[in-house]
Amino acid sequence: MRSSRLLSILLLLQTRRQLTARELADELEVSLRTIYRDVEALAAAGVPVYADQGRAGGYRLVEGYRTRLTGLTEQEAAALFLVGMPGAAAALGLTAETSAAELKLLAALAPDQRDRAGRLKNRFHLDLPAWYRDAETSPQLSAVADAVLHDRRVRVRYRRWEEPREVERVLEPYGLVLKNGIWYVVAATPGGLRTYRVSNILELTPTDEEFERDADFSLAQFWQDHLEGFDRIRYTGEAVLKVSPRLAMKMYDVSFPALVKAVAAAVPEPGGSVVVTIPIESVANAATTLSRFGDAIEVLEPEELRTELRDLGQRIRDLYS
């Protein structure tokens, strides 16, 4: 629409101070003739735009002129640069919208604030995936996001862990959560609110059926409750461990939050070793996790875990004998 293009020209000139007709035409993907007409329309509407002649010339706004069409204060616009997630925006199919929003944010700033916003953008970077893990590819993500935004039901074929592995569901998607590079959709089902891993959605069929979401629903609160409930279900027991002095001194390098937290709160024994109690998911899972520490950790309890580790060590020894 022409009105949108006129606003874009205004914001571009306000942000970049001077642009040639060719640069504006390339930026907006229109012809030079269209740019000439649009600039004349802006001038006729009272916008103080003028052209500098010569090889270094171009269109400019009168010094000091700034539009307030964005409706953002300088502080609000500057703060938003700290929470930008270009990777997430691209995954949601919002790359163009993000670029347009960034332009409007920059236009809301005075020149000195604009420089500061540029520094914030170039000096702070958010990298969501955890170490040793790539971000998941979720082909259905943009379709799920569209359904979330428009409160529309979707029919999906979903792959889960238990049998039957593939099931069909009708979901009312309430919101999307990005955790460690993995997208999850929170959706209402006949059985209540559930969480689904978006990468496990094998097929998705949009519908025109709108649903009415619970007005009291809070995505942030739901997710917090979900994480706490997941931990309660996940941990089925405890293990008492004796951590060697050399490992206790290197907890800053260990990617095992429960162990790190327990060691930090413990009082070392004479000699530097530390005895701690940590929650475990299962004996088999704990054995696999703890085996990577070799002889730096000794399991004191439960006896079943000691036996599982001994058997695991024997199987490994047999394999390489």
Rank of each mutant, 00 (worst) to 15 (best):
R315E: 05
S321F: 11
L309Y: 00
R17D: 05
L149D: 10
D214T: 10
I182Q: 01
I233N: 10
R292D: 13
G118Q: 12
Q53T: 12
R159N: 06
D115K: 10
R60C: 06
A56T: 12
A100S: 08
K242P: 07
A51Q: 08
P190H: 01
Y235R: 06
A90L: 07
G237R: 03
A89F: 03
R157N: 13
R2I: 07
E102V: 15
A188L: 13
A101E: 15
V243M: 08
W183S: 05
A248E: 03
G272C: 07
Y132Q: 06
V62H: 10
D311Y: 09
V198F: 11
V276N: 00
E74G: 04
L141W: 00
I9E: 02
K121W: 12
T98W: 15
L106Q: 03
T98G: 13
R119P: 06
T189L: 08
D318P: 13
V274S: 02
R213Q: 13
T307S: 09
A143N: 06
E163P: 07
N285E: 08
W223G: 01
I297S: 00
L103G: 00
D231M: 08
R157Q: 15
V39Q: 01
S3Q: 11
D216H: 11
G229Y: 13
D208W: 13
A145Q: 02
D112M: 05
T236H: 11
V156P: 01
R315Y: 14
L300E: 03
L126K: 09
E168Q: 12
R310M: 06
W131Q: 10
V144F: 09
W131M: 13
L227H: 08
T34S: 14
R155K: 11
R119W: 01
L10Y: 00
W131I: 07
R5K: 03
W131G: 12
A77I: 03
S321M: 15
